[in-house]
Design a protein around this nucleic acid. Structure first.
Lengths: 207, 207
DNA sequence: GTCTATAGCTAGATAGAC
DNA sequence: GTCTATCTAGCTATAGAC
């Protein structure tokens, strides 16, 4: 097998570049230059550009799974459990500035090189696990009567937008907020705003 | 000037392809083939690939502005006005399957070919108008006491996620929902789910 | 306004020396 | 495991005939 240190360096560089410009926007030459290798040497570590991209995606998903796993323990009412899960998920997204963007790209960029063409990777599977964990939390809350009778898939989409999109929005989001997206304060604020919306909605109710 | 019909055909094709694979993922050759022209002929209508991309983006933003303009009239309380605006905005996103995806790409793909390099286009300006209209609706509602004391930028991010991301999510979103994203029923359902969240939150309150 | 031809470059990927 | 050299194919863009 290849030198693990070199392999990890390539993954690190690929992660930054793919997050910034997507699969098609990145060339192996640029990756090689940043790692400090000749372009050909990359193909010793990864058979093709697609394999490198999938390896980057899979490492990101694995990191997310690690972070949210402790939040999945079976204690507390549905509200506490969803709160805990969202906190952990947001922490995972905020850990590296590349995470949310790669996740968002992975979600809507794989319509291209058709899913299932590279079955040796577990990208699809890992994504499904993460999604079904979240979905079960919502369904359990609805069934228990702790949540309104929302459509779980629609609530999933809303939560993905409120978390993944938010932390993927980069310069645009920072322009809107007028401050960094990933500072400890900004991350804490995002958690609070999201949870307040879930608790109270936006409207002020007539008393 | 060029034949407007041909120009529009090029924009139509570019819109579909750029929405699907982004700026870097599309070649002028593929655009030309789908239009039924030689590749060189494209450069008679658009000076460069970037100019074509910006023209596509600008047309999309203009279409959105047209759709939401009637919803901006100064009648009703803040709740009614935001409801009306969100309905119109969602209708604009649902009008073409390409709209939301191009908008989302435009939001976080212009970190690359740096903004302001092509000042003759109004993409940036149109986006700012759309955003500041929405933001004013939120700020007015907070000031009037009709909305909770949310952070308007955070609420903007949540609403962008709930609308633009949702309709941009393509096959992924359809897999999650188990049905098309853009059918009349699905669009109406999305409006209802979003407005119910703004009205009531997710939690069922203790009475 | 569309075409052919081509310039000039970069892409992903391979072969084989060291 | 990294290198140089090279292959084939693609790219954006231009020149100039029709």
């Amino acid at each position: 097998m290849a030198d693990p240190n070199t392999r990890d360096k390539i993954l690190d560089v690929g992660e930054v570049l793919f997050a910034r410009r997507g699969f098609a926007g990145v060339g192996m030459r640029e990756v090689a230059d940043r790692v400090g290798l000749g372009k050909s040497s990359l193909f010793h570590h990864f058979r093709s550009k697609v394999q490198l991209y999938l390896a980057v995606l899979e490492r990101v998903l694995a990191r997310i799974q690690e972070r949210v796993a402790p939040a999945l323990k079976d204690t507390g009412d549905p509200c506490e459990r969803l709160d805990r899960y969202l906190d952990a998920f947001i922490d995972a997204l905020a850990e590296h500035p590349t995470t949310a963007r790669l996740l968002l790209r992975g979600i809507f960029e794989d319509d291209d090189f058709d899913a299932g063409t590279f079955p040796e990777h577990h990208v699809e599977h890992r994504l499904e696990v993460i999604l079904s964990d979240a979905r079960r939390l919502i369904e359990a809350g609805v069934e228990a009567g702790a949540f309104r009778d929302v459509s779980p898939p629609h609530m999933m989409q809303t939560l993905i937008g409120a978390t993944v999109y938010h932390f993927a929005s980069g310069e645009f989001g920072e322009g809107l907020l007028g401050r960094p997206l990933l500072s400890a304060e900004a991350v804490a604020r995002r958690k609070d705003e999201l949870k307040a919306l879930l608790h109270n909605g936006l409207w002020v109710k007539a008393q």
